[in-house]
Structure formats: C-alpha cells, structure tokens
Write a protein that binds this DNA or RNA. Sequence first.
DNA 1: CCTCCTTTGTCCTGTGAGTGGAGAAAGTTG
DNA 2: CAACTTTCTCCACTCACAGGACAAAGGAGG
Lengths: 396, 396
Amino acid sequence: MRRMTARPANAHQARLLKLLRDGGPNSRAQLGDQVDLSRSKLAVEVDRLLETGLVVADGLAASRGGRRSHNVRLHPGLRFLGVDIGATSVDVAVTNAELETLGHLNQPLDVREGPVAVFEQVLSMAAKLRATGLAEGFDGAGIGVPGPVRFPEGVPVAPPIMPGWDGFPVREALSQELGCPVMVDNDVNLMAMGEQHAGVARTVADFLCVKIGTGIGCGIVVGGHVYRGTTGSAGDIGHIQAVPDGRPCACGNRGCLEAYFSGAALARDALDAAQQGLSAELAARLAAHGGLTAVDVAAAAAAGDATCLEMIREGGNRVGQVIAGLVSFFNPGLVVIGGGVTGLGHTLLAAIRTQVYRQSLPLATGNLPIVLGELGPAAGVIGAARLISDHLFSPA
Amino acid sequence: MRRMTARPANAHQARLLKLLRDGGPNSRAQLGDQVDLSRSKLAVEVDRLLETGLVVADGLAASRGGRRSHNVRLHPGLRFLGVDIGATSVDVAVTNAELETLGHLNQPLDVREGPVAVFEQVLSMAAKLRATGLAEGFDGAGIGVPGPVRFPEGVPVAPPIMPGWDGFPVREALSQELGCPVMVDNDVNLMAMGEQHAGVARTVADFLCVKIGTGIGCGIVVGGHVYRGTTGSAGDIGHIQAVPDGRPCACGNRGCLEAYFSGAALARDALDAAQQGLSAELAARLAAHGGLTAVDVAAAAAAGDATCLEMIREGGNRVGQVIAGLVSFFNPGLVVIGGGVTGLGHTLLAAIRTQVYRQSLPLATGNLPIVLGELGPAAGVIGAARLISDHLFSPA
DNA sequence: CCTCCTTTGTCCTGTGAGTGGAGAAAGTTG
DNA sequence: CAACTTTCTCCACTCACAGGACAAAGGAGG
C-alpha cells in the first residue's frame, strides 16, 4: 500500500484528526458537537481530509431518530511504530491511527552497545512485526531513549547510561532507515504521554509520572503538554540528594536517590542480603539463577520475605520523600508510579503515599491520587505512537 | 478624568496593546514589523483602538529617511495600582499603562490582623498616592498576598501565615472598594512576573524565582507563563524537608527548610547567638534596638562578623540543597533569588551556587545563571501591575 | 400507506477578515 | 528641482465562516 504523506492543512483539520484518533469513527454531526464550527464549514474540512486520503468513509451509523449519519474514520491502513528503548530491554509495537496496539515485541538489550547495534535490533524487530502482515510500512515512528534528548532535533545529549549515544542523530538516522517521519523523546516522557492518552492520567492537566526502572526519572505534564526543560533534562530526579553524605553514586556525588532505590540498587542490595544470610528466599533464588534482579525481590516479597519487604519499604520511603518535595513544589493533580519496579506493587505504593501525605502540605495533598500506571510496559510504546501522531496530525 | 472601560476586541488588538505597553510609543510601521499583519489590516486595528480611547496619537517621530511616522501610545491617563502584601509590610505603587512606577509607598503591617484591617490600610495608602496628583482613579489593580490563592476567583485558600484570610473574597471586595477590575495572586508569583517584565528574567521562557522573606516560596514560570498548580499552591517550597528529623516547624513537621532559613528563623538564630555571646556585633545591636531581624544579621555580616557570615553560609547551603533538587527536576534557564534576605548579598548567593553546581547534573547547570533579582521590593508591585494589565489587555 | 416530526447533510448567499498593490503624503539627498 | 525613501491610505479581490433554506433519510403514529 502507498504510504500516506498528507498533513492537515490547518488547525481545524488537525483538531478533527485528533478527535478521530481519540474517539474512533465519527459522523460529521458528532464532530460538529465537539469543534465549534458551523456544519457547512465542518463539511468542507472533512471533505478536504477525505481528498487527502488521511480520512475515509466508514459506512452508515445507526439512526438516532432521524436520517442515519455517514461515518468517517482515519485511514485503516495507517501504521505507527512505537519504540521504547530501556537500559536493559526494548519494546517495539505497531499501532493503527487510533493508537490501538496491533502487535508488540519485547527483547532484552544492552543500550551500552551503542546506537548502531541497537538500531539493527530495533529494525529487525520492526521487520518481524511487519512480516506478520500487521503493516506494509510505517507512516511514522516514535522512539524513546533512556536519557535526555534535545527534542527539536531528536538527538540524545550527555546521556549518563548511554555512552556512545551522545549527539547521535537518532531522528535522522531512523527516519532514513524507516522511510518515514520520526520523533525522539526521553522514555519517561513517553510513559507520561502513554498514561495520559490511554491510562490513568486521561483527564488530568498537570501531573507527574515517576518511572522507577534501572534509573529513576519523572515525566512532567503541564497543561496537558510534556514539559522538557531548557536543555531537555527536566524530570531527571534520580540524582536528587536523598541522604546527605550518603552512599556514593555512579554520577560522582553522594546520597543520590538512584543509589538507594532503582533496579540496579535493588539488585545489589538483594545480593548483599542473600550473601549475608538475611533472606533464605533470596539465597535460594540466587542459587537457582546465579544472579538477582528486582524481579526476585518482588517475588520474595510477595512470598512474605521480611527482609525484602523491608527493602521495598525503605526504598519507598526514600522515593516518597523526594516525591513529597516535588509535590510541594509542583502541586500536581495526580502522581503516577510506573516502570520496572511496578511489580513491587502495593508495598511500594503504601510507603510512597505515607511519606507524601505526611510531609507535603494538606492543600497540595488534599485531593491528590498517587497510583500505579495502568498500562505497564505498553505505556512507553503507546506514548511513542502518540508522540509521532501528535506531530503528524499538526499543520505542517 | 473618565476611567477607561474598553477592552481589546480581538487577539490582534490585545497583541498591539501589549507591544505598546512593553515598547512605549510606536508608529504603525514599527508595530507592523512585530505583528505579521499587512499594513492595511494593522491600520484598521490601530484605528479601532484609537476609537476606544485606550490608545491615543502621540505626535510625529523623527524621520528615518522618508516620511515621518505618526506615533501612537497607550492613553497617558491610564493608571494601575500594584499592591504587594507581605507578612510584615505592604508595598503599594501606582504605574502608568507602560507599567512605569509613578509613586511607591511602603509601610509596616501585620497580615495577621486580617483582611478588613489590611484593606483599610491599603486603601488609605492608595488614597495618599492619589492625593499627590499621580492618579484620579485606577483602571485596574493587581494584588499579591503571602499565601496560596485560588486564582480564577481571587480568593486565598488555607494560607498558613494569614489566619482570617481563608476564603475571603479579596478580588471582589477590593474591586468594589476601588471601582475597577482586580486580580489577585501569590506574592511570589508576582515577584516572578515583575522580574520577567522589567528585571533579570526578561528573555527567559522557563525560570524559577525563589523568594526568601518571612517564609520561602518559589515562582515557577513555564513558557513565559506563571504555573500555579492544581490548587494554587505550586512553588510552596518552604516546607520541603531539608533535614531528616530536624528542627520542629510551625507546620507540625520537622526539618522544613523554613525552620532553618527564612526571615523568622534567621532572627531567632541571631537572638540565640547574641545571648550566648557568640557575636559582639549582634549583642550590641540587640542592646541598641531591643530586638534583632535579618537586617541586623546582614549588617553584622557586612561588618565582617564571623558568626553571622557562618549563619548565612549555612542557611545558603540548605536553601541551595533544595534548589539543587528543583533544578534537577525542572531544568530552568535561570534561577532568581529575591525577597527580604537579598540584603545578605553575595555570601548567600555563593553558598547557593556552590550547592547547586555541585549537586545538580552538568546538563542542567551547564548554562544556568543563578542571580539576585534586580528590582528589589519593586518586583512585587510591578508584577502586580503586570498581572492586571495582562488581564485587561486580553480580549474580553 | 400517509402524515408529521427528527436528524443529517448539502447548497447558497452574505459578511467580515485579511492581503496586496497603487498611489498619495511627507521627508531626505544631491 | 529631481530622484529616492519611508509612511500611510484607499481599494479591489480572496477566502473563511456563519446561518438559513432545503433535500435526504429515517421513525412514530394514525
């Protein structure tokens, strides 16, 4: 199939495309209820969208007591690629124009192998998805990387855990390989966009999305838009000082939050506990697998292991303390907790909530939900698809 | 003089009014260079503004090599009132439409006496300024209060240091008394707007404005607009935990930043130092005035008193630690330090800078100026005038 | 089957926003 | 005084958009 190249010609068309993306097939009348345009003007714009091929007719809707309406929808052949590169694994998904996931792959990966090796793997995963018949090509791709990004250019800048990626033209390179427009962002921002589009943050204008995985980051949404900061490093909360003169951190400082609670720190603490005989559960798992990760801690905690529960509680307290400060500062309408450690579940959430509700002012916490993300690993790829669709569904 | 009641009829007119406010008298040609409208359309909108009386002709400009241009300017009789209510004093100023300060009064005040007493004083100060012939009436007023505000309604909510103000309809009451439109905001936000309009933050889109006075607050500007949070309490950083299990704070928690460094904490520490004989300088001042404030500490430090210098350094370190966290999180393009303790000057600034540059990541601090506000006590009232002018110079 | 009402979609005309060019007005330079 | 520049005004043309008339298509009741 020929790929779509058209873009909306004006703000009205952009608005309509986004309504069709988020609301599925709609009639002109239904669209008219949402856009404050006269029916005649609306019809003109819809007709123009039909001409471009971005939108197609979709049969008749049931009658609502009068003449049946002619539905329109986004072209069913449109395909977006969502890529979420983590420190230790990568997610790739294909969506249609309504951002529904049609196929999803996850593979282990070491981001430190550099952009060339990683892209090879990503492209082969994309090819595999395409080979299943889900897509003949892609109309756009969004991609998330675990580090700061100079957003307009789509280039990682000074990424601590991705040596070799600094300044690599991710956007341009991938766009060339895939033959479609590409947008690049921080993985945490994409998670926030995912939860905003299809998860727990659908109705909230200002919220924080804390992702605890190999590292710790925080997506910041202001007035419905991701805030990226002056140099693209906003939300980089992993190296906020949690303990004065505390543990040394890989960044060179001491007492950073990430040194106390993150996938990496948790794995190290688990190994210590197993070797010191503090947890039979962990020792058994260490013997079985030859190594420990946050997943083992989660499993042991679920089995009632006291040491692991305490580790999670303590880590949750530290994260909660930092989040409490951010809540005082930012006064969000919602805090979402996500990332690899979501498996730690309610124990973690309870510790975080306790700290925030205790330390922040009542006015800021009075009506503040603190919840786990509801999309899990899909948040990133959905956010990635959302990113590129927001771009393509905006006037050129 | 008859007060102006007109408002811009559309976004173009609003834009033009703001250009005239920020740029002073301008010709049609100069305006045309800034607004991306055809000269004919521009002339139409300017003529309409002239009809409303908001804008008046202002003679001929010098020739630039051809026909001399006809200048227009905002009506010279327009007057805004800026009010900045602090915990212990109040500033009232009158500005013209270009937000130039025409008169400024400062008086001591105890905000805890409640809104009725405070308004009486503010109104008498406004009357005094009017009596000097600066204004015959006010076209609008902006007012800042030292606590969170439900912005759309202009009502303080749960203000910790302003008992008796909770829910008081400040905007409505003052609007009735003054007979003009009124906007209410947090004093810290107004300081940020002041520095943005006429101070150090003129060219920065995203910045933080930390005000250290009786309490500590932080104005947050995102994309040129003040961010107020979900319930209007954004920037309330005084009760972020600076020291785990530290000093008790008035808010009921322990270790809050405000308990360590603010006008009130500094005064208390100074009293302790004087009584324990740690500072001859402070002891002398205590004997002379019967009490100590941050001003005494500043003076003693300026005279080289080691104890006071150490107090400032230590306080600066604590504030700097918190700011370092905020810089990592928010990645601003500028940090402005202001408020009553600005008198502590370079010692304070150096301590803050040290902490931030040491603790935050290079990408966030690489090109981050940390500077003192340049407007001093005028920042609040200028910000207040800016607030109401932004409101009045927007389409109704 | 017919009539009346509802909903949806199309067509047409009028209005106002906005552009761009011609040209007048006012000035400078040589 | 001629030539050139800048500023401002006037006018004709285009396009965006609203709103009403009307046609198309359906349901409910007689």
